[in-house]
Amino acid sequence: MTLNKLALVTAMSAVLTACGGSSSGGDNSSSSLSSSEASSSESSGSSQSSAGSEPTTGILSCENANRIQGFAAMGDGTTGGAGGTEVTVTSGQELVAALSNKGSEPLTIYVDGTITPDGVSDGKFNIKDMNDVSIIGVEDRALFDGIGIKITRAHNVIIRNVTMRYVNIGDKDHISLEGPATHIWIDHNTFYNSLDSEKDFYDELVSGKRSVDNVTISYNILRDSWKTSLWGSSDSDNFERRITFYGNHWSNVNSRLPLFRFGQAHIFNNYYQTVLSTAINSRMGATIRIEGNVFEDVQNPIVAFYSEEVGYWDLEDNLFIDVTWTEGDGVTAGPNPESTVSYTPAYDYDKLSAEDTKAHVLNNAGAGVITDCL
């Protein structure tokens, strides 16, 4: 089923006027080559800032690695526990104690070792009813083995440089955000489960629901997952959430990269590699700018499936390599992807060209990459 572009643009006019965008997008074009060749999509939109001066495919400088882009940088930004108390933990019990004992000062928790569910009664680590917290892995030694983190009624939270795997207790997510939760930065982590399991044995790697806002998810590896990144738990979870995804490596996954309902998302310079079902799924009127990404060996890179209402996308400079498009319960952007709305996020940002994205992401995404910068 193919989208009627003019009708969708008209339907989005009021929404985009309210959020500062434009509903008058110009002509869009895309090229569709053979399955062994790369095709690209372009729109008349443009980013507010071009790529920086450092090598585009090399390792990030610490200055750039520690600079937040996207929605988490808006307003007063996201600083986590900077300038406050620092503590190092080596077990789950110590991590629970550190969070429970947090006072009014900002708190940075350094994780040095393998964190298991042993002695953790709730099946997850709760950053709840508190502000100004960072959880940062030490070197390449921070492993959350079988237990995740839930962020609820919290503001100004950073999680960086940790590895999480095989979470099937608590909420069964690696990192779960439940609003109200604002100004969250999830950066340079590695998340994985297994596709050898039954589909519902694990849940999401990184997800959010209800009033979650000003979130940036950057330079993470998200792999080996059935259900990967859900934003909006149902078709009635109607909040104007705003999430940025950039520099991430989505690899060997089934779907939800992300599944996004309502609100606004910005997805740029991500590398999608081996996706079995669907990648970006825009639903229930969501508005998503998708630019500078690489989709390689991906089924249905961009769709609006399985909801009562479709979502929308603004496409620019994406590469599609050995992708397939199939019919589903909704609409698909392919085989010749075009924008269905014009949308520019309300912040400045630096982006790379799609042709530089794959090498850049492979060099920079994941835990253990930025240990000299923390």
Rank of each mutant, 00 (worst) to 15 (best):
W250Q: 00
V215R: 07
S47W: 11
S29F: 13
G80H: 04
L60S: 12
S229R: 00
T85E: 06
S251M: 02
D203F: 10
T344A: 10
K128R: 14
S251P: 06
D200K: 11
Y349W: 13
S50A: 14
S22W: 08
H249R: 05
T56C: 03
L3I: 15
L315T: 01
S207M: 05
T244G: 12
D118V: 11
T190A: 03
A346V: 10
T17E: 09
V120L: 06
F260K: 02
D213Q: 00
L177C: 12
H174G: 10
V341E: 02
L362C: 04
S233P: 13
M164A: 03
Y271P: 03
H266W: 08
G83N: 08
D350T: 10
E42N: 14
S36R: 04
I217S: 01
W226Y: 15
I243D: 07
D237C: 03
D235Y: 06
T78V: 10
G81S: 05
V120N: 12
S211R: 13
G334M: 05
V369L: 01
K124P: 05
I302S: 08
P335D: 09
G368Q: 12
D129S: 14
T278N: 15
S197D: 14
R261N: 11
I243C: 01
G25Y: 15
I159G: 11
A279K: 10
G146T: 07
L374G: 09
I280S: 09
I151T: 03
A51K: 10
H266P: 15
L230S: 09
